[in-house]
Design a protein around this nucleic acid. Structure first.
Lengths: 340, 340
DNA sequence: CTGTTAGCGCATTCAC
DNA sequence: GTGAATGCGCTAACAG
């Protein structure tokens, strides 16, 4: 009878009655508060056990003024960015201490407003807003009754606190790695130029090239974040600039497409052509031939950061403001350095 | 100052005072309960607005005996199966009415117990347990104070209610499709034989072959759910049985690997060799050359089902028991039927 | 050491 | 129509 919602959970007064003490004493005994005779405590604990008593967090929260819950407001349907962040947040909160309300707004502002209202009504102690792009998103406003931290997609209001990956830095270390591998004829194939991520990564790449006295081979190629585009772009690129010796790709998907075309055209990777991806989406990056070197945005750490700040704010610490770009890291695999 | 948690949210009595009425009247006015003079209601609503009053869901829940929350207890780190289910659940709950606590146990039983305790303490109205395999998982037990529904991974206790995709049916329709495409020399490459999913899909495939008076070409090839295995297995298979004209793959990842090898060996897909995947993981299935025909488990619908049942149980309806296999569907793309 | 009292924010009787 | 009183389950002062 899984539907058996019938057996009302035991309350503290049930426990107290069974242990033959007052409800206050029972409370103290279970929470280790105040002075309770060991024998009494023993009796109370046993009674609680027998009734499988579980304290009502709502009643507790009502009194304490905090609920021990946090809202995660997202619009990342796929969860590709949201999930690592969520896991990081759970880590930071120390499983069990804090629980997370997950709300998916599906990219709809109305729905987001709706969810926000619900979260506030539930008196969450804080809110983490997770976007699916690194472009700034509308702020929830300064009038929030609880601390708000933005993750991945920063707020467009500098008075808010936001954490976002350092895409510029990512572009830079990607190209620095290619240069360190001895490459000098480097091209760039990336996704939708309307994305800040595309522009930032390109800017970082350009700076690294500049520092090395190099230039991008051809113009950066923009279109969509797909394998198809990676294949087509690589074909065009290798035809027009056969002397290219490395391609920095704006995403792992694009890089997979590039690898495909390279294979079709008989260009050997990495000897003849080095390829580097972005995002380190493991299902793509570790299953290609060769495996993809990529840039990892450390999203789990980003989630931990965001959660930590929400935590601090709850404890009354001032969490500051502004958009903070968190460091990314290079994950080297076979597409840039040959295995021996 | 995003840390500004200072402004204690307004309470109903704040609203009442400002509107010059009693707290009881304010409550009725805002909830449309009882008879309140239109003018009075007007005043109360305005006061609530000015204070941006948000009712405290905890206080309300304490009184009502239900919280309007549901726990989603998962161990699917990637979220590949969990997320569609979560979205389906949110749909069924009608955004805003019910909120979901998401708990990731990371496949650790201790952690799961911990989270379960927390959920019960929060007095969730129901729990959905989501696994990452279709193998039966340990039941949470029959003594739960709230309704529990299992999704994707069924409970090992038949007294529980579980929803899982019909893998046998999936194997069958996959092979039926291949046969309908005129294929007769069909082989099977799949993942870890310890997975029920692998065995069930194979069983379904065998039944379909049987019904058509056919047999699998060679033995089913088991190993891991990866592209690498798909590539290696296909190479072995095509060498030993060059006359194979179709391959049913246990996952889209494996199918991607198979496509790679087919291309390497100059076997044209789908003319020369039809390939069908499983899971319809779109990032893989829609980006291959050609795009992958695959079996979609309708996970979002599965999530909606599970949520609906939890809902029913909350309303006192008996939700029944047993493991229910939900229908899957065939998604036809270019890897089995040539585009014209 | 233990029990009594008050109150967190709200919805619901039941008098007026 | 409106308001005073009651209690959901719990913890924190206090008094015994």
């Amino acid at each position: 009878m899984p539907s058996e919602g019938g057996v009302r959970s035991a309350t503290l007064s049930d426990v107290a009655r069974r242990a033959g003490v007052s409800i206050a004493t029972a409370s103290k005994a279970l929470n280790g508060r105040g002075d309770v005779a060991p024998a009494t405590r023993q009796r109370v604990v046993e009674a609680a056990d027998e009734l499988s008593f579980t304290p009502n967090a709502m009643a507790r929260g009502l009194l304490a003024g905090r609920t021990g819950t946090v809202g995660l407001l997202t619009s990342d349907l796929e969860g590709r960015f949201m999930l690592p962040i969520l896991m990081g947040a759970e880590d930071a909160f120390g499983a069990g201490q804090v629980n997370v309300f997950l709300c998916d707004a599906r990219g709809d502002a109305i729905r987001e407003q709706h969810h926000l209202k619900a979260l506030l009504s539930r008196r969450v102690d804080g809110i983490i807003v997770v976007g699916r792009q690194t472009d700034p998103r509308p702020s929830l406003g300064q009038e929030m009754p609880v601390p708000v931290v933005y993750a991945y997609a920063p707020s467009d209001d500098p008075r808010d606190l936001s954490f976002t990956p350092d895409n510029d830095g990512g572009g830079r270390i990607a190209v620095e790695h290619l240069i360190a591998c001895g490459r000098t004829r480097i091209a760039h194939i990336t996704g939708d130029p309307a994305y800040a991520a595309a522009q930032d990564r390109l800017a970082g790449a350009r700076r690294a090239l500049d520092d090395a006295g190099l230039e991008l081979v051809g113009e950066p190629m923009f279109s969509e974040w797909s394998e198809h585009w990676g294949r087509d772009a690589a074909a065009m690129l290798l035809q027009r600039h056969p002397d290219v010796d490395a391609i920095f790709c704006g995403s792992d998907q694009i890089a997979r497409g590039v690898l495909d075309t390279a294979r079709d055209l008989g260009r050997s990777v990495p000897d003849d052509l080095a390829v580097i991806g972005y995002d380190n989406w493991e299902v793509l990056s570790t299953n290609s031939r060769p495996q993809l070197t990529s840039i990892d945005a450390n999203l789990q750490q980003l989630g931990r950061h965001a959660a930590q700040r929400v935590f601090d704010a709850i404890d009354g610490v001032d969490i500051g403001e502004g958009t903070h770009q968190l460091p990314v890291r290079l994950v080297i695999r076979g597409s840039t350095i040959a295995r021996r």
